[in-house]
Design a binder for these strands. Sequence first.
DNA 1: ATGACTTAGTTCGAGACGTGATTTAACCTG
DNA 2: CAGGTTAAATCACGTCTCGAACTAAGTCAT
Lengths: 402, 402
Amino acid sequence: MTDEGRRNVRDLRRANRARLLRQLYFHGPLSRQDLIQATGLSSASVSNVVADLLDAGLVVEAGAVESEGGRPRILLRVDTSCFEVIGIDVGETRIRLERFDLGLAELAALDLPVVGGSLDQEAVVAAIAAGLAELRAGAAAPLLGVGIGVPGIVQHQPYAVVHGQTVGWDAFPLEERLREHTGLPLFIDNGATTMAQAEMWFGAGRDADSAVFLLLGSGAGASVIADGAPFRGSTTSAGEWGHLNVQYQGRRCRCGARGCLEAYVGAEAVIARYAEAAEAAGVAGIDAQDEEETLRLILAAAEQEGPAGEPARSVLDETAVRIGVGIANVVNFLNPQRVIIGGWAGLALAPVLLSRIREVVREHALRLPYSLTSVDLGALGADAVARGAATLPVARLLEAGA
Amino acid sequence: MTDEGRRNVRDLRRANRARLLRQLYFHGPLSRQDLIQATGLSSASVSNVVADLLDAGLVVEAGAVESEGGRPRILLRVDTSCFEVIGIDVGETRIRLERFDLGLAELAALDLPVVGGSLDQEAVVAAIAAGLAELRAGAAAPLLGVGIGVPGIVQHQPYAVVHGQTVGWDAFPLEERLREHTGLPLFIDNGATTMAQAEMWFGAGRDADSAVFLLLGSGAGASVIADGAPFRGSTTSAGEWGHLNVQYQGRRCRCGARGCLEAYVGAEAVIARYAEAAEAAGVAGIDAQDEEETLRLILAAAEQEGPAGEPARSVLDETAVRIGVGIANVVNFLNPQRVIIGGWAGLALAPVLLSRIREVVREHALRLPYSLTSVDLGALGADAVARGAATLPVARLLEAGA
DNA sequence: ATGACTTAGTTCGAGACGTGATTTAACCTG
DNA sequence: CAGGTTAAATCACGTCTCGAACTAAGTCAT
């Protein structure tokens, strides 16, 4: 029982304004006639609501459609220059801040390395505060808010608190700490979720209203979008796709259990399995600087003809199989319109493995849901997390309609 | 973008009426003052809306609260006798029809065996039509509608079509076929979903807003409740828990793939596995009339000391393990507040296996989500599917408020 | 050019709703 | 039976959406 219901006539107007604004934001310039169709409102109401939005400066006229014998339709569009937003990607090794206009076109960016191996909380707060100050300086329009994607579970109680096991954050009160430095509205969410949000708005998830985004990096996570909104479990930690059990008494996973998907498909697992396979086959191992480099070399090794490439091919094939089974599970259980593979390891592996992955999905998924699902790569690059974070204040604006 | 938004003031009234009616339905007799608190409406509006509902006959006065010095509060309640509903559970071996009042108190029931091993479509239609006619005869109030829980995926296009891979239904146009026999509004949904709905309204899911219900019968399904509402995939076929792959290249499942959970945990699979194990151990097999009887005998066999009970014990232990792993997957991936085991086979097996199941879940689930989840039995008996089916017309009434 | 025609967008009056203030109803206490 | 107290109904007002009437801005045929 969400308490978000409309109660009085003013709420009704707000809802209709939001509906109309949303339509204009996502479906380009539209005429009032188009809006009548799209929103189901009467022409009189559309005129009124549009007048509201024009007055507020959120919407502007944008030329006219050629006449077909009558008065030409005047096109309307959201004025993307009337507000700006800031999106921040707090990664494990660096913080990226970007400033966008309301249409999420990038206006400025800033990369801050975080000193020290781990993400020291004080350093993060100081870096964000400094970066915000710098980015604000160049703004040509009022800032709507700041969205932040963080590597961990976010709980709102009521201010955002971050639990980041991999970066050593235990109930880090990020929002309260940042409030000391800025009066801007803050929106904090998990980085995987913000990335999914960016893909939903501008990338591979456009025009879908249910999708599952798989994030293959060192490990394997997921973000589930249902009915256009992120699905959160009861404690907002849903999406641990990597810890689906796919093999009873299988490989040991770093979470302690056996047979987790993540013990087979994350970059860390692929690299470990290759090391074993190479040793068993008497092929030289790979010793590169970091995981990204190692993964590239394994992909290259698979191109070698003959027995030298055999371990790599075998490891990659099993990886494709496991990913495919993991996707089939998601397809059977959640039946999303799309499954999108992202994350740096996913984007590296999937181009090579995609057709094999799809084959395995087809074998293991039920016919009906499979036939209605597509499996694809993410369409946005590495800045999807920051961009997705920036969508958070914009989403708030679209919901409120003011 | 659901098109379910309020547009004009009459929709607003309908929404407020629905909100108020819902409150009265689920939270017992309430006074107008209580409703002001609960709905956030003004006293004037509550008076108006209540007058609407009194006029419509949906709500009646129900005594008064004792005065505390002023005018006493008059209690209001939904008149559960003003409508009746019928709920039907189409199981794999029998069809159960029940008639309820609006408060879902059972008024009459009817059990129809389905002749033939499989669920012949014509036989199902004929049985339902006959059962409906018989149940309608005794009704003392207008029938609101008929809810039907079926073993398969339901698509509305716009009439309900059922895809039941396991019972051999391929796009079975159940709704159209039944329309030839009755003019009552029909509501058709997956049986696991209707069971979940019943448990959410009246059973183990009360006061939770996210839960996963497992339906163990001949096969194995699930229903996911998120934010108090059933989660449906893009094509309303979500919840195929039984076809999560838990063993690469494992047992052949009747869906065609290998290693599905359902190849291990449904009654059919348990029985098949016991037959194999008994033969291998040289123990006499079980040849009972139906699956329910057979399952009971297997459970009894496990009580036998010595080698005679060994095959049964081993099969049941593996069943517990597989169920536990399947639950752990759900816990990790969706992080529900509760996991509820139901279905006739689940209710038969779980009392014996529950502690072992919980142990396996603990081993395979991540610490944090596990610590916030409970695994329990369904609180409603075997008629939860039919009762849940009957909630569908009621839910429609509560949403429409008329 | 000009007037008929067509389509887009605005304005107006009616009807419906929710709200706060006010009034009426129903009970208690002494 | 008067005075106090709380519950519920009523009233006056402002806001909303809607359909219809109306104005604006084009095209097209003559």
